[in-house]
Design a binder for these strands. Sequence first.
DNA 1: CCAAAAGTGTTAAGGGTACACCCATGC
DNA 2: GCATGGGTGTACCCTTAACACTTTTGG
Lengths: 233, 233
Amino acid sequence: MKKEKKYTYDYERPALATDTVIFGFDGAQVKVLLTQREREPFKNKWALPGGFVFMEETTEQAAKRLLQEKAGLRNVYIEQLYTFSEVDRDPRERIVAVAYYALVNAHQYEVSAGRDTLKTEWFGLSELPKLAFDHARIIRVAIERLKGKVSYQPVGFELLNEKFTLPQLQTLYEAILEMPIDKRNFRKKILSTGLLFPLEEKEKNVAHKAARYYSFDKRMYKELTKKGFHFEL
Amino acid sequence: MKKEKKYTYDYERPALATDTVIFGFDGAQVKVLLTQREREPFKNKWALPGGFVFMEETTEQAAKRLLQEKAGLRNVYIEQLYTFSEVDRDPRERIVAVAYYALVNAHQYEVSAGRDTLKTEWFGLSELPKLAFDHARIIRVAIERLKGKVSYQPVGFELLNEKFTLPQLQTLYEAILEMPIDKRNFRKKILSTGLLFPLEEKEKNVAHKAARYYSFDKRMYKELTKKGFHFEL
DNA sequence: CCAAAAGTGTTAAGGGTACACCCATGC
DNA sequence: GCATGGGTGTACCCTTAACACTTTTGG
């Protein structure tokens, strides 16, 4: 800590890091992207992508930078989750982690895959490996948050492509909420929001009736939200 | 930073602090407890009670410690709000703040008032003074959180005494949500949860029909929550 | 023509909302 | 007895929940 400025606070300081839970959806399951650690502690164990916060960036900027550095992801939807500060959560030294969660869609990930990044892998929520540090807990908190959020904010669309079918959307909601949803009621409700726009295009090469694609107008949603509109499941 | 241990992270670190938004209720308005700063920067300006996090405590422990040191408050309901990390939020140096919000009732505060604490004062939400740092923003975020939380978790009871009347409870909800609520519907709904227990005792010395006191069984609520019960407004 | 999933309406029940009068108490 | 706020019930509407058959497409 060499600095000329006078500190009003001269105590020892915890290190500050961010860890991000990256959610994805493969059409059937909600998944989390993990990286395999190359160093001790927890060498070879799986962990959330994360790292230390620099002096000239906010924690959110740090989380986004690390997402790109470690997983090659850009322009992702990211939101602060919770700050974990247990004194011994890292065996090396005191590290406080501001955790974020991110929602990415398959396309976004494809584009950036194969870059010069760490070894990463998607894991289904029920097939998570042993995790480093307190990352299992962080993921549990993130899942709870996602469940809560999905029913009153249209976050689900971040996990799908720009064009998606209603059955895809329903499967996603069922995966997040871990419960079956009635098809007709789901369609009625989601269409009644007026935020989904049917496209001409339909699925191709499927051995059954082709589903219509829809798009979600994020801009219109933001407009309506300002005017007091309230999305709900 | 003198330490013998080898650091895996040798960069400069932001200082880590907590700030807490303390909500109270005077029977008519929701209020926030502020302290007047004794030092620069922002000398004599009002600010949230807060301070730096020590190495051997979590941020929550720090927030609770500072609540006691600065406002004499013990055993308060406290919850993490959000972490504010804008690089220039403090003019002295980089300080990241993990913000909390607390709910205290008048009785709790009376008991601890007059201690050897800083100069503190309650301010109604619509009468807030100019605030130091980014504390006005932190309060806005806290109010939003409180509004959201109140409708699906029975947090309101933390702001009232152990015994309270339904009109008091309704006034509190109206103050938090900033909207009028129908008396009959409110009673119906709140009583239908089965979490409120009527007491024999009634109000005294009021120039109208005396209201009955009720109590809220926090223990039973926790039990029910585990069994999947879901409180709602 | 068969399999597989998309798409579509109606009904019954429950919860939410709106609304007006009588009651107890202190002065 | 009057002013003040506490306490109570009902009717309508809208939202939710349950439920089965027809359509399209590829093989």
